[in-house]
């Protein structure tokens, strides 16, 4: 049995004017750490709200732990932990009050399930009587995770848990997810950060309501193993324009302090390209091959998707 099964889900807003999810299908295996990766507005939150029974899809079928998200609503709610993208705990209750409240709502007690969250809670314990609204961003996120875990859910839905969190806390957070996964909890997580994809078992790239690809990170990268070149010169903007007009260029986009360039014939075109750039008077030229990462793959998929339309 799959932990999550999504089959041709369509969801529109504003009476059909806005297409949020366009025939989305994917599966999440039991015990998997699955990443939904896409820019803001891609439809990640809508997908989460459907899977956590907060929204009803227009068409298509979705199952969580073998239960239909529309018919099995009350069964699902008992077994699912959800952490919305926006911090949604009671800011005027303390850490322990929030935890006790959510434990009781799920018909259990904080004491009984404290062991489930022990390794996260130890970091919160020194502030246990502080109001949630007065916690730092990283602390709030840990508390939200604890509250989502306190009823021993079989599956966790985390909507952009690391947005707005500092890099150290982000890394810590992913380490926590690894430990939860080791306990057998299925985790579905969304993120706009491409670099977090490598922490997931499998990822789905989503853009404007469409799934672009679903695979392991390695799988996605191997499909895009075209050689990439990192290029820079003193005049980056002119360089970008020149390369985009160059007949041998397949794609070229800004990537940090370099441009990432892919050529129609790969290695074979390198000499011609260099000659073209020198002829265009580019000073201090750097031109080196790089390994494509997930961001390159994503941009390429996005462009493919764009052309396909």
């Amino acid at each position: 049995m799959n932990a999550v099964l999504v089959d041709n889900i369509v969801k529109t807003y504003d009476k059909g004017k806005i297409l949020a999810l366009n025939k989305v299908s994917f599966e999440v295996k039991q015990g998997e750490l699955f990443g939904l990766i896409g820019a803001d507005g891609a439809g990640k939150t809508t997908m989460f709200r459907i899977l956590t029974t907060l929204l009803i899809p227009n068409s298509g079928r979705a199952e969580v732990l073998g239960l239909d998200v529309v018919k099995g609503i009350w069964e699902i709610r008992k077994m699912v932990g959800y952490m919305p993208g926006k911090f949604s705990l009671y800011q005027d209750l303390s850490i322990t009050e929030n935890l006790r409240f959510f434990a009781t709502v799920f018909n259990t007690t904080f004491e009984k399930n404290q062991h489930l969250i022990e390794d996260i809670y130890v970091q919160l314990a020194p502030f246990k009587d502080r109001l949630a609204g007065k916690l730092s961003g990283g602390m709030k996120q840990k508390l939200a995770l604890c509250c989502a875990l306190i009823h021993e859910p079989k599956i966790l839905f985390l909507d952009e848990p690391t947005t707005g969190v500092d890099p150290v806390s982000r890394k810590e957070f992913w380490d926590m997810l690894d430990r939860l996964k080791a306990r057998g909890i299925t985790i579905v997580v969304s993120t706009p950060y491409m670099d977090e994809a490598e922490r997931c078992d499998r990822i789905a790239l989503i853009q404007k309501g469409n799934i672009l690809d679903i695979d392991t990170l390695q799988g996605i990268l191997s499909k895009h193993k075209k050689t990439l070149f990192a290029v820079r010169s003193e005049q980056m903007f002119r360089l970008l324009n020149n390369l985009r007009q160059f007949e041998l260029t397949e794609s070229c986009f800004i990537f940090g302090e370099f441009l990432h360039l892919s050529l129609k014939n790969g290695e074979a075109d390198v000499a011609a390209t260099k000659a073209f750039l020198i002829a265009n008077n580019h000073q201090n030229l750097v031109f080196k091959p790089v390994l494509p990462n997930i961001e390159d793959a994503f941009i390429e998929l996005m462009e493919d998707n764009h052309h396909a339309k």
Binding site: Y90, V105, F106
Partner: peptide, 13 residues
């Protein structure tokens, strides 16, 4: 406004 209603809505409440 605080979004807490959404957090409550995913509970068996």
């Amino acid at each position: 406004e605080a979004g807490t209603i959404e957090q409550l809505n995913v509970t068996p409440l």
